[in-house]
Write a protein that binds this DNA or RNA. Structure first.
Lengths: 155, 155
DNA sequence: CATTATTACTTGACATATCAAGTATATCTG
DNA sequence: CAGATATACTTGATATGTCAAGTAATAATG
């Protein structure tokens, strides 16, 4: 059913280009950091180890490494994160959150949860949220397999 | 269930920041236009009337008007769209697709459908696609009601 | 009908994202 | 172990998005 695909795509696209920016703006309003900074800080604050390498961090968020590199540079300048060369492999950088970054993240996360709740659990049923998670995972897996960001050799 | 919200959000966010850009790149590869240009051309090509005003076009796609203004300016320069002042209300601009724009859209749409199919119908069940449409609509409606782009007077 | 809002859009500065090319280190291969 | 290749990241140019302020036309109000 072509019709359905196209509708699914449009529906998804529309929320992707309206909800995501909206939530980004909320973060800026309540915590003074951008949506991108928020996402990075949350990822870093949840690490079980003190730091991740840049590449892994990028992959974890589905970002291009160049984007992450720029982002981390800016965040290092504003003191939200710290970057240091890996001792074992000196091509790699270990990225970690600073005390300042953690403090901001910790105050931003609960505020942002409220916003997310308004846009998700206030609006979707329990079953719909579960369905969304499954859908997202299916798409994510497909993306990882078929269209990974790391350029493959085109044989 | 906090846990579920957060998972739903992350899942959604992740595909929003990986799938959307991926599909944009595909468009550029197969048709030489950006994802944004594609979306605008599709919207214009589907009009039942010859033109829309800029504001409506922006609202239809959930874009800020300033973004649409910039986008349309660029697309007018490259000859994909045409802009003309509305005769009844000369603050308004009527935007329409050019022959060149339509030609590009018409060749791009089927190619892009194939990509969309790979990312949606190849991966999701019929029921999941229906669920996604419902979820998207629920969120879209909520956004329209509670967080419209047009700035409201505060209080 | 003059004044004040409001609407529709533009503009320019700035932030961010993307792409292609570059650098440095590590690894592989003969 | 020298040269080629791959990896991890950086850099800078360009494209795009966002925000705040501006302009011009219409509508609303006293």
């Amino acid at each position: 059913m072509k019709e359905l695909d196209s509708k699914a795509w449009r529906a998804f696209h529309k929320i992707g280009t309206s909800l995501l920016p909206h939530l980004g703006r909320q973060i800026t309003n309540h915590s003074g950091i951008s949506g991108a900074e928020y996402v990075v800080l949350v990822a870093l604050s949840e690490l079980k180890v003190p730091s991740v390498n840049l590449n892994r961090l990028a992959q974890g968020l589905g970002w291009e490494i160049s984007r992450m590199s720029h982002q981390i540079s800016r965040m290092e300048e504003t003191g939200l994160v710290k970057k240091s060369r890996n001792t074992e492999d000196s091509r790699c950088f270990d990225v970690s959150i600073t005390a300042k970054g953690r403090k901001i993240a910790e105050s931003a996360i609960p505020l942002q949860s409220i916003e997310i709740n308004h846009c998700f659990s206030d609006v979707l049923t329990h079953a719909q949220m579960k369905a969304l998670i499954e859908i997202s995972e299916a798409i994510s897996n497909h993306m990882k397999e078929k269209h990974p960001l790391k350029k493959k050799v085109e044989n």
